[in-house]
Design a protein around this nucleic acid. Structure first.
Lengths: 199, 199
DNA sequence: ACCTGAACACCGTTCAAGT
DNA sequence: ACCTGAACACCGTTCAAGT
């Protein structure tokens, strides 16, 4: 059989979702396609490049409408939720996307959209960048934890007392950071109890 | 030669610092000690367990005095800085510690001390736990980024326009989260401009 | 353009056996 | 208690050659 680059990515996504990141090897993908491992190097320069394409595909599939119409803070919440949902949709999605992001590969970084949203909030670029990466680190870390616990549960080892991370603690952490960001909003004093401007 | 478990950990830390996490293999550690790879399995049940011991060792070496005397927010800042410094002290330290933490291995989790500090701030346990993990995700993510950029720079590929993460953006992100936490302080209204209680 | 076949230089882990 | 030696079942990557 003769495949296109996108066919390989598609199959890699399936292997990832069904067998996890540890089993996502070049040899495994090749054998599932009925190819020799070396054939993959016609489509991708290295495994890292293939993984970056897989991460981009996962984020693409979770992409929704643009966030330009929303208020800056609603846009930030929407982007973070979209990112979380996209990564949760595939086994080890968060670990894969975070790894690709850490290596500076992949073209779908959520930092750009977040900086844009924060820019509409009137924040300086330096501050917007620091806030955006803080948010991204939180989302990656939290969703990785969620998926690790999902995995542990599905294997059967459920500790009763343990605090499980989920949508609740995600929103809590997210609003924590957002509250911190709002406090730096230039030229404004905040109403602490509602989180909305009071002047 | 005949080694103790701690000798193996010590050598592993050296290999990590000199050659990086990618080259920290069981075979590499064994050969540096003049042992067969199988000999390591007398001391550690698996590579994961060895890595957990290495992470613990790195955090142990960075351990300072306890933070019980400090105000809760000063303690949080101290714990996060200590964690950052400990991981920055060894090549790929952040990636290793974060990986071990994600797998639930290692005995030196910074979440405990952070929850304790936040408890002294009067926060509910659930909230304290969410805040602590948010802080830990931020620290792991930020320091991983710092070390990735350090590595890229030392290789020689320095992009000029790029925003480099460092101590400045670390403190910025940290105070961002801390500001958000302060806003949830029970039974208090905050002075937004100073970050200190006003009532 | 896309793939095969064979090779190279590695992995983590197990296990019987040695001292 | 600590280690050897050999094996098993894998890796990512390269490269000449095929269609």
């Amino acid at each position: 059989m003769r495949y296109r680059r996108s066919d390989v990515v598609e199959r890699a996504v399936t292997v990832l979702d069904q067998h996890g990141l540890a089993d996502l090897s070049m040899r495994r993908i090749a054998s599932e396609l009925g190819l020799q491992p070396s054939a993959l190097y016609h489509h991708f320069a290295s495994k890292q490049v293939l993984l970056a394409a897989v991460a981009d595909e996962i984020l693409d599939r979770g992409a929704r409408t643009p966030h330009d119409q929303l208020a800056w803070d609603a846009a930030v919440v929407a982007i973070c939720h979209e990112l979380r949902d996209a990564m949760l949709a595939y086994r080890d999605g968060a670990e894969l996307v975070a790894t690709v992001h850490a290596f500076g590969l992949g073209t779908r970084s959520p930092v750009g959209p977040l900086v844009a949203a924060l820019g509409r909030g009137g924040f300086a670029l330096d501050f917007a960048h620091a806030a955006a990466t803080t948010l991204v680190h939180f989302v990656f870390g939290h969703v990785s934890d969620e998926q690790t616990h999902l995995q542990a549960d599905s294997v059967g080892a459920l500790g009763d007392t343990e605090i499980r991370p989920g949508a609740g603690s995600f929103d809590l952490g997210l609003s924590l950071i957002l509250d911190g960001v709002r406090q730096q909003q230039p030229g404004q004093v905040q109403d602490v109890l509602s989180g909305r401007p009071s002047s």
